[in-house]
């Protein structure tokens, strides 16, 4: 439940992310190997109450290994995970959840052919005893869901509406507000915007900020620096399982972030290839120019 005194205390201490506050979740020099493959090497990051830590990296950078380590799917081979400053060994995702660490996976967050209220309480249904038998407390479930979704800025007028009829962004909102309601202090969001259009991505980023303003720590995993920069307080760049850079917002701007992430030379190379492919086609030319700009870090 949300009434846990620990997060509230730290929220009051550090509404804007005071550096003295203890991080809610911290990874220290974490490494993970799969046989001879290095999935993660010496990765450190932290997330504090009321802050958003963005983990950026291209495909294969080790983002999903990092998520799985942080959410207790597997333990790190080296290094340690700390919750509220205390080292901890998760026995599994369930224990991580019990410590208030909730992971929202991009496509696997909701059941489309179930109503919003059923999805919201799935796995943690409120019940009402009727003699020896326990029934779903539908009235309470619907009321709580409405209130919690309203906090995210969504007005659900029909709780029986199928989640499948919601937009991609709203579905993410259901998953996020559900995690927050069930006591998540740290939200790990796995590529929440990657399948969404521009407008929907904006909506999801708004929910990220809303969760942050409720005093939660958010770890936003993404490959898009333009989604990360407006909402993030800290940025951790991953490449081939290693941390390429770790910055607070005042240490870096979005252009530098983009450049670092893609690797300036690689983008310039792509731009050249594109121009060679379609010098006459305006669309390709335009794309090539944009890439060249990204590569040069001028946006």
């Amino acid at each position: 439940m949300t009434g846990n005194p620990a997060p509230n205390a730290s929220v009051q201490e550090a509404p804007g992310g005071s550096p003295r506050a203890v991080p809610l979740l911290e990874a220290r020099h974490v490494s993970k190997y799969f046989g001879s493959v290095i999935a993660l090497r010496d990765v450190s990051l932290e997330v504090r109450a009321g802050e958003v830590t963005c983990v950026l990296g291209d495909n294969g950078a080790g983002k999903s290994s990092l998520i799985k380590t942080l959410s207790g799917v597997f333990p790190p081979d080296e290094g340690e995970i700390l919750v509220d400053g205390n080292p901890i060994h998760f026995s599994g995702p369930r224990e991580a959840r019990a410590h208030g660490i909730a992971t929202v996976f991009q496509d696997l967050a909701t059941v489309p052919m179930m109503s919003v209220w059923r999805n919201f309480f799935l796995g943690q249904e409120p019940t009402r005893s009727f003699g020896p038998i326990r029934f779903l407390d539908q009235g309470r479930a619907k009321d709580v869901m409405k209130v919690e979704m309203a906090k995210m800025g969504i007005n659900v007028s029909d709780p029986n509406q199928y989640v499948g009829t919601l937009s991609g962004g709203e579905r993410q909102a259901v998953a996020i507000s559900r995690a927050v309601y069930f006591g998540a202090r740290v939200l790990i969001l796995d590529e929440p915007t990657s399948a969404l259009g521009v407008r929907q991505s904006g909506i999801v980023l708004k929910y990220v900020l809303q969760a942050r303003d409720m005093g939660r720590g958010v770890i936003l995993i993404t490959h898009n620096p333009h989604h990360a920069y407006p909402v993030g307080d800290r940025f951790v760049l991953l490449k081939l399982g290693r941390v390429m850079g770790s910055y607070t917002k005042d240490q870096i701007n979005v252009a530098e972030l983009t450049q670092m992430m893609a690797g300036g030379e690689e983008l310039a190379q792509l731009s050249h290839e594109l121009q060679r492919l379609g010098p006459d086609q305006p669309a390709i030319r335009e794309a090539a120019q944009e890439l060249a700009q990204d590569a040069a870090g001028e946006i």
């Binding site: 521009v198 333009h226 909402v231 794309a287 946006i299």
Partner: peptide, 21 residues
């Protein structure tokens, strides 16, 4: 073409998105 496609799309999104929030 397959590779730059998504890259250019996301940088297009980016301009809009910063304002979109």
């Amino acid at each position: 073409p397959g590779i730059p496609g998504p890259g250019s799309a996301s940088s297009e999104e980016a301009g809009d998105c910063a304002m979109d929030v």
